[in-house]
Design a protein around this nucleic acid. Structure first.
Length: 728
RNA sequence: GCACCCUUAGCUCAGUUGGUAGAGCACACCCCUCACACGGGUGGGGUCGUAGGUUCGAGUCCUACAGGGUGCACCA
């Protein structure tokens, strides 16, 4: 018997190993690149690899999708660290303003309380306490996945440092004229009592009756009769022959819901002649398109529905009635007046709902803060390829430019098209929210005066804007706010732009695009060089998922049951970039078996090869060496090109089919009846190949490889900072 | 409506630059042989959605179609 410790006599026990190993990593300080340099495991002038962790919602749960994200990012990080890079992966959490506040309000509601039972300060404190409790749990979950994050640099989108960043960003953009306050039509959620951005809207198909009403000489169609009270403009296409007798601005007397009305004819090419009767009345205060038409023709804009979803006095007898209740009543009245022409019951259309809360969105006109993405500004300090310092550009143009020029590469490449398409439709970004939890808008008012800045203005009588910022405003600064910006820190100079941004494709627009926007403006450079997008894991609503009952559940449960390494492999193998993942528990189990296989290979190696030796390889062993070097090259090539799934599979098959089934099986005979030269050669082969194999596999299965490594005679320090094997 | 993705073994999916089909699980039979039964061995199972095209050669590229899914836009 050789060096084999007793622990190898039992099957691999992930539970006993994992906590212990993580503690050793953490205590080593090697998650922090500064320590790596100080201890001499990384060269001070080594190339940099940096990445931010997409900050999980502070009140969220770590789900199997986050596990996939953590796993991919940790694999890349560990690989780069072993390649000798100055490697930094920054952890943090997101305050997720709306989501968090809704959650707390739900909790409060259980005690029959609402946010209105508290002062602003009290309420924010309640939310804050809630967040603190949850943050710890998320950190535990991230640790359980084995992530090599530098916890000394942990950040939170709503902590003090980030608040300075947010206020600085707001102020500088305001001063550049890119942030403005204006009355626009916005997406209003009557339930959460806040605006949301266009991207937070979800369209849902719904069947509603479609009514045709007699409107003077015209027949108009609508699915929303409750908005029609104030409709005094009738719009048609200028080239519609059916209505050529009517002229722009013509007045028409007609009978409407609450009595006689003078309507004005408007001609506008936006009208689709083939839809309905080709004529419509407009409600500019509650429809984005109608609002545009009204602006174009200088028409009156009148609010019909209040911010709670109830009809205003303009509705006459219906004033104060909720729109949901009012609709059938209005139809009934119009029918009685003989103005209902017909009803199409089979009408299917898309309604807008808030993806965060689920309530129907009511377009409303409100005074809000926006980022103007089209306005030209001068980019004073540009490091962006193709844009000179001082050159004029717009946020939109710059955002397009950095991807078109290839300075930012998006993987898989088809998502570049999604990105371009989205940018082309990018309208002013509404950044103010009427909720309490979040970064309060750094603007103060006093009479007609306005003051924008990082701190409150001096003097009496200033009142701060009541609104908070869209949560994505602060997370958009993440690549540089985590590095100390707006201070010109050493971290900022060293690690920005970050090397890689890895996240789910579902937040390409929400987050990735907005990070590009912010970095371009504030840093004059890209936030990252490569974007790697992984697929999402469908929830119970996903049709495919619900039909199979063996889909895996909570990641923590899985790591408990099968070990983190097994879960990591199951998440990686067979899951190409950008593809959605459906994970069967059986697959995780299979990689638990693989972990045990590796464990037993370790046992064999340590039993039979007490020393590494310096023997000369026999010809056949030399072939194995060559094969292994080729494998190491292949794996490195896959890693460089983010083909993690292929790399993992190659490693799996190598250790099982080549190393265990061929090399070890042969070795049994060689060790028994081989010549001394054969034996020495084989012992060296087995030890060196296995030892280096552990390095190759470590990014994927960090715990078990580190645990076996501690028993290897070749081990000098932790495996996590060993150099990636490039040759023998 | 516009765009993108998917369709490969019973199930879940790989297959990076085009070169005679792979994995895990499941299934059948054999083996508790001295690293490992969380193992080993043997075996069954696929006209790679359909129809064309390019090519010496296509699951892999092109075109059309069908089915499934996603994103964006939107109808008054």
């Amino acid at each position: 018997m050789g060096l084999m410790p007793e622990k190898f006599l039992k099957p691999y026990n992930s539970k006993e190993v994992e906590k212990n190993i993580y503690k050793r990593w953490e205590e080593s300080g090697y998650f922090n690149p500064d320590v790596c340099i100080k201890e001499g495991v990384t060269a001070p002038d080594a190339p940099v690899f940096s990445m931010v962790l997409p900050p999980p919602n502070a009140t969220g749960e770590l789900h199997i999708g986050s596990a996939l994200m953590l796993c991919i990012e940790d694999i890349v990080t560990r690989y780069k660290r072993m390649q000798g890079f100055r490697t930094l992966w920054i952890p943090g959490t997101d305050h997720a303003a709306i989501a968090t506040q809704s959650k707390v309000e739900k909790e409060l509601y259980k005690e029959k309380k609402t946010r209105h039972d508290f002062s602003r300060e009290e309420f924010v404190n309640i939310v804050h306490e809630f967040v603190l409790k949850n943050k710890g749990r998320i950190k535990e979950q991230i640790i359980a996945m084995g992530c090599s994050l530098d916890w000394s640099r942990e950040a939170f989108t709503l902590d003090e440092k980030r608040e300075i960043g947010v206020r600085t960003a707001f102020t500088r953009m305001y001063n550049a004229g890119l942030i403005f306050r204006g009355e626009r039509i916005v997406n209003w959620d009557p339930k959460l009592q806040t605006t949301i951005s266009d991207d937070e809207i979800e369209h849902k198909e719904q069947n509603d009756p479609f009514y045709y009403f007699q409107y003077g000489p015209f027949v108009i169609g609508t699915a929303r009769p409750e908005t029609k009270f104030g409709d005094k403009y009738v719009v048609m296409h200028p080239e519609d022959k059916r209505y050529k007798e009517y002229t722009q601005g013509q007045k028409i007397n007609l009978e409407w819901i609450n009595g006689p009305l003078v309507a004005t004819v408007i001609k506008d090419p936006i009208i689709d002649m083939s839809f309905g009767s080709g004529v419509m009345t407009i409600t500019p205060a509650h429809s984005a398109i109608d609002f545009d038409i009204a602006k174009r023709h200088g028409l009156d804009i009148e609010q019909v529905i209040d911010f709670n979803g109830k009809l205003l006095p303009i509705a006459g007898e219906f004033a104060g009635v909720h729109i949901k209740k009012a609709r059938p009543l209005i139809v009934e009245k119009l029918q009685k007046k003989g103005l209902l022409v017909k009803t199409d019951e089979a009408y299917v259309h898309n309604i807008a709902i808030n993806s965060r809360g689920g309530e129907l969105i009511e377009p409303q006109i409100k005074l809000q803060w926006f980022i103007d993405v089209n306005k030209k500004f001068s980019l004073t300090h540009s490091k962006i390829k193709g844009i000179k310092s001082g050159e004029e550009t717009s946020l939109k143009d710059a955002m397009l430019h950095v991807v078109q020029s290839g300075e930012i590469k998006i993987l898989p490449p088809q998502f570049e098209k999604h990105y371009f398409h989205w940018i082309e439709n990018f309208k002013p970004w509404c950044i103010s929210r009427q909720i309490l939890y979040g970064h309060r808008i750094p603007v103060w008012y006093r009479g007609d005066e306005i003051s924008v800045g990082v701190t409150a203005p001096a003097g009496e009588g200033w009142r701060q804007d009541e609104d908070t910022l869209d949560t994505w405003f602060s997370s958009a600064l993440w690549t540089f706010s985590t590095l100390g910006w707006p201070e010109e820190t050493k971290d900022l100079k060293t690690y920005h732009p970050t090397t890689l941004l890895e996240t789910g494709y579902d937040i390409l627009f929400f987050w990735v695009a907005r990070m590009i926007l912010m970095s371009v403006f504030h840093m004059g450079e890209v936030p990252f060089k490569t974007v790697y997008l992984h697929g999402i894991v469908r929830n119970e609503q996903g049709k495919k998922l619900s039909k199979s009952l063996n889909n895996a559940g909570d990641p923590l449960e899985m790591t408990e049951k099968y070990g983190t390494d097994a879960l990591r492999m199951a998440l990686i193998v067979g899951n190409g970039p950008g593809n959605d993942l459906k994970l069967a528990e059986e697959k995780i189990k299979a990689y638990k078996h693989f972990a045990n296989k590796l464990w037993n290979v370790g046992r064999f190696v340590l039993q039979h090869t007490p020393d590494g030796g310096a023997a000369v390889f026999t010809q056949s062993d030399q072939q194995y060496v060559t094969q292994f070097i080729a494998l190491a090259g292949d794996v490195a090539d896959d890693m460089e090109n983010y083909r993690l799934h292929l790399a993992a599979e190659k490693l799996y098959h190598y250790i099982w089919d080549v190393f265990a089934s061929a090399i070890l099986e042969e070795s049994k005979t060689i060790f028994k009846i081989g010549t001394p030269e054969d034996i020495a050669s084989r012992k060296r082969l087995v030890m060196t190949v296995f030892s280096d194999f552990l390095k190759l596999l470590h990014p994927f299965m960090p715990f078990i490889t580190e645990e076996i490594w501690t028993s290897m005679p070749t081990a000098k320090s932790l495996l996590m900072v060993e150099k990636w094997p490039n040759d023998f």
